[in-house]
């Protein structure tokens, strides 16, 4: 009995430690964004609670005196455009690899996935040159053009595993019932793959929201910056950090992405590891 109580408290105890470690920075961000500057910048005040009543002054600053909304819209624009390109490129390729290409399909699929391992921190140098040669320097379109380099390989791999999970016989049945191969894809495979495709869309979007180095390298014009770059470069005037607005801006942009990602996490992980675990 005692062992049970101990093990249960032990369990919740250790779990709480992990939760605290993971979430505390975000909690601080939450408090900080609503704390009065006076409260915030008194080092003796407890940073974990409101010592003075909360305020919206930082949020007002963030939304009216900075280009935060622009940054958000820029990221959204790039996100949607890149997701669209990714889907257009990856869905046919994944279908081809999963179904048609047979044995060398497996190899090519792995090959495409491996290109994900070529990191942006290596490619950014030649790519920045290519971007300026194409005249896309300082434009969001440079990101729209280049971001698929890391979304497409991964998403093709994910989609491949989703397509493979649909029994081949259903597709064959559709072909016998009168569809061409593409017809079977449109009428039967695609509707059944919608959960997988939505997962890929969400995942691609999170990849875009995370990107830093390309945006930093390609874009200098503040009106064209995305959220990660914008917050870290524009909310610092000289040596002064606008902490309240900075924390608020970071938290506000993080939460929607985090929520989406968490909801689809299981599917993403299963798509990722399906090749390495015995089924």
């Amino acid at each position: 009995m005692l062992k049970k109580i101990l093990s249960r408290t032990g369990f919740y105890g250790i779990l709480s430690v992990f939760i605290l470690l993971s979430a505390t920075p975000f909690y601080i961000m939450l408090i900080t964004m609503f704390k009065r500057s006076h409260d915030l910048f008194s080092p003796d005040n407890n940073p974990f609670i409101f010592n003075e009543p909360p305020t919206l002054e930082h949020m007002r600053l963030l939304f009216t005196q900075t280009q935060y909304t622009t940054f958000l819209l820029n990221t959204l624009f790039v996100g949607l455009a890149v997701v669209a390109i990714t889907i257009i490129l990856a869905v046919p390729a994944a279908f081809s690899l999963a179904r048609i290409a047979g044995r060398w399909g497996e190899g090519l699929g792995i090959g495409i996935f491996l290109t994900y391992l070529v990191p942006p921190t290596l490619l950014f140098i030649p790519l920045s040159r290519i971007v300026s040669l194409l005249g896309l320097q300082n434009s969001l379109w440079s990101l729209v053009l280049i971001y698929p380099t890391f979304t497409v390989p991964f998403c093709t791999w994910l989609l491949m595993s989703f397509f493979k999970s649909i029994p081949k016989e259903i597709e064959e049945q559709a072909m016998i019932d009168g569809c061409s191969r593409l017809g079977a894809f449109n009428r039967v495979i695609l509707p059944l793959s919608i959960p997988g495709i939505v997962t890929v869309i969400v995942f691609a979007f999170t990849l875009v929201a995370n990107e830093y180095i390309y945006a930093l390298a390609f874009i200098q014009d503040s009106a064209q910056k995305t959220i990660g770059i914008g917050l870290t470069t524009e909310l610092v005037r000289g040596d002064v950090f606008y902490w309240g607005a900075l924390m608020g801006g970071a938290l506000l942009a993080s939460i929607p992405v985090a929520l989406l990602y968490t909801v689809f996490l299981d599917r993403i992980i299963s798509g990722l590891t399906v090749g390495t675990m015995k089924h």
Binding site: E169, E172, Q173, M175, I176, S180, P191
Partner: peptide, 30 residues
């Protein structure tokens, strides 16, 4: 000729019913 032009119909061991369609739509599909 591809399957759809041979005038054949097939029943698979697993029946291969379209899981997202009703029985009516399944039968009506061809």
């Amino acid at each position: 000729l591809p399957p759809r032009e041979r005038g054949i119909a097939m029943v698979f061991q697993s029946y291969a019913l379209y899981p997202h369609k009703t029985v009516f739509k399944n039968i009506a599909f061809p």
